[in-house]
């Protein structure tokens, strides 16, 4: 072997000069892995005029930042980004390489894994290492039960995984932290690009509403039908919450799919999360378990949702919800005010 594969890398996804939250979270998770393995943690940063971001990457835990700064890299495109990342990975040989499970992160990682002929674990929600074998243990909900599967990549390097946003914790930034910046050049020509970005349109109205919500009322299949589901909207309205649902509810057509919470939908971390008529399948729980307060209402006392709930009510949602709505209304009129949540007064 010419050179051993060493080091933990995190792909730093930036959009118009702003680093995605998930990349900072991954630096936090990557730090732990790197410390366990006794290697350095590096960020991989591509874009146009992105050198200024290196400091931030270091302050969030990276020892090194590999940077490719090039005008062709202004907007994300698989073709150009893939070239840069492959070049770095082949030259510096990391043993572990993590990406955020965002549209761009997943797209890039898939292309890179193909070229490097290595394994890629999708939508990971837990990370660890087996120190002895230096194996990345990337775990994700498995189809086959309320169960997690640990995916290993024994013979190929780097070991790669995409990781769900909001399941790992970013470190407190340390502006004193020192790091090395390694700039790399690449030959790219716009005329060679087969994909052209015509424009980028921001539409935060839809998806951001759930991801940034402070309070969420999530309804599950237990509400029985679409008519009953209006109770969820009513409660949300009274307490100023956003509405979400489980995949079963979305598949039943009671909610549009951008409001699905869980492995295949949004990951949310509100202050308060109401799970009403939700069984608590693992694919759902991975998308909401980091909420500060979880309130479960379910008529089955043994539903797994109660295992993650701060407060549990065993009862019929169709009985409980109207009472809850009524009580909140009364308190609000009594105190004449509005409900506030930490961080948003």
């Amino acid at each position: 072997m010419s050179k051993e594969y060493r080091g933990v890398w995190v792909f730093i996804e930036q959009n118009e000069g702003e680093i995605e939250g998930v990349s900072l979270e991954l630096l936090g998770a990557g730090r732990t892995l790197a410390d366990k393995l006794g290697v350095s943690l590096a960020g991989v940063l591509l874009g146009k005029n992105v050198l200024a971001l290196c400091k931030q990457v270091i302050s969030y835990g990276a020892d090194e930042v590999y940077v490719i700064d090039h005008p062709v890299l202004e907007d994300y495109r698989t073709e150009s980004y893939m070239k840069g990342v492959i070049l770095l990975a082949e030259k510096y040989r990391p043993e572990i390489f993590l990406y955020g499970a965002t549209p761009n992160g997943k797209d890039l990682a898939s292309a890179v894994a193909t070229d490097l002929s290595t394994g890629l674990t999708a939508d990971t929600t837990m990370l660890d290492v087996d120190l002895e074998k230096r194996l990345l243990e990337a775990s994700r909900p498995a189809f086959g039960g309320n169960i997690m599967a640990t995916i290993l990549c024994k013979k190929h390097r780097p070991q790669m995984a995409t990781v769900r946003p909001k399941v790992m914790k970013a470190l407190e930034p340390d502006s004193e932290k020192q790091g090395v910046i390694i700039e790399e050049n690449i030959e790219l020509h716009e005329e060679d690009m087969r994909t052209k970005v015509l424009k980028i349109v921001k539409d935060v109205s839809k998806s951001a509403s759930l991801a940034d919500a402070h309070i969420i009322v999530c309804g599950g299949k237990g509400l029985g039908d679409q008519q009953n589901f209006t109770l969820i909207y009513e409660l949300a309205e009274v307490i100023g919450a956003s509405v979400g649902g489980t995949r079963d509810v979305v598949e039943a057509g009671w909610l549009p799919h951008e409001l699905q919470i869980g492995q295949t939908g949004e990951t949310v971390t509100p202050k308060v999360y109401f799970a009403v008529g939700v069984s608590g399948a693992i694919q759902h729980v991975v998308g909401m378990k980091n909420s500060d307060i979880i309130i479960a209402i379910n008529k089955d006392a043994s539903a797994p949702i109660f295992d993650v709930a701060t407060y549990g009510i065993v009862g019929d949602a169709l009985v409980i919800l109207p009472k809850l709505i009524q009580q909140f209304k009364e308190i609000l009129t009594e105190k004449g005010g509005e409900i506030s949540y930490a961080g948003k007064i």
Binding site: D307, V308, K323
Partner: peptide
Amino acid sequence: SPTIVGKMFTPPKHEGGKRLEGSADEQVK
């Protein structure tokens, strides 16, 4: 296939929080 399933496990159980007792009205209150 470079990836293999290493192990399957049930996620660590959270202890779960407080169960509210009593009638529906009492639970809500």
